[in-house]
Write a protein that binds this DNA or RNA. Structure first.
Lengths: 155, 155
DNA sequence: GGTGAAAGATTGACCGC
DNA sequence: GCGGTCAATCTTTCACC
């Protein structure tokens, strides 16, 4: 169970994973080695899943992204695992959410252009069993991109 | 314009922002100082937007997330800037996408529980002008969470 | 962009609570 | 178990070519 020191560390590292342990120490009120030990423990327990650079999509050659709302046949059971497995492997697929409501899956997909997105839908979605239908919402602007979570509530 | 060295650096740092410049150097085929200079330039030009820790939502006390499909009145002009501004400020809102298609905005929202999500919809969505309707898709599982982009295509 | 050295950060050993 | 101090090690960063 994380205490407030841990939550402060996590909140700081969510904003800047490269913050030196010394700055972290000042912020959370511990010594640098104490911050380091806690940070290491947070990594080992999986509270920190990974530490990554957020890169501009255009720089990486991904010019468009789509939100895809997928509706499955109404006997979806474990068979959709096959679909999800193929989505996990597909590099263009950045996020897969299982949802309840008007749809069953929501995807966040990157593409170089519309033609390559069409390819993706053909090989991955149209080809899949149990996909009844899907709707593509083309992203015009990613107005807020907060890969980090909201800050934790401190006790 | 990034060359292949830059793209390799970006691809590596997307997977692990803490990779030492020495390892980076081995991977991309440059010396550590060269990698460092390129990395710094990539930060300064905004190709690297930021470097963050991906934290487990449950550790941070965010137990549920939602995908929200927002439909606006059909005279949305600049007025929706007010809505987007409030969404950008709201800590629970992790992503805001402007989209074309059956809806106008897609949100990715975190909440501590359903009651606090209800609060959010009341204060931020129901209260907003020009929101015609919205649909909430409750996330049951974030099966793929790839805050990083797909790898770049190298020439 | 490479080399080598200075500056700074991370990590380990050890002590005390 | 926890954190603190000090020191060794490793990384980042700079100066110079």
């Amino acid at each position: 169970m994380p205490d407030d020191f841990d939550l402060r560390i996590l909140t700081a590292l969510q904003a800047d994973a490269r913050m030196p342990a010394n700055d972290l120490a000042d912020r959370v009120g511990l010594s640098a080695p104490a911050c380091y030990r806690r940070t290491r423990a947070l990594r080992e327990t999986g509270a920190i899943e990974r530490e990554i650079a957020i890169v501009s999509p255009k720089t990486m050659g991904w010019t468009i992204t789509m939100i895809v709302l997928v509706t499955l046949e109404r006997d979806r059971g474990r068979i959709i695992d096959d679909l999800v497995r193929s989505l996990k492997v597909a590099p263009e697929v950045m996020d897969v959410w299982y949802v309840t409501g008007d749809h069953d899956l929501v995807l966040h997909v990157a593409a170089h252009d519309m033609a390559s997105y069409d390819d993706f839908t053909r090989t991955t979605l149209h080809a899949a069993e149990h996909v009844r239908s899907f709707k593509t919402l083309v992203v015009m602007d990613h107005a807020k991109r907060n890969a980090a979570l909201p800050p934790a509530h401190l006790g």
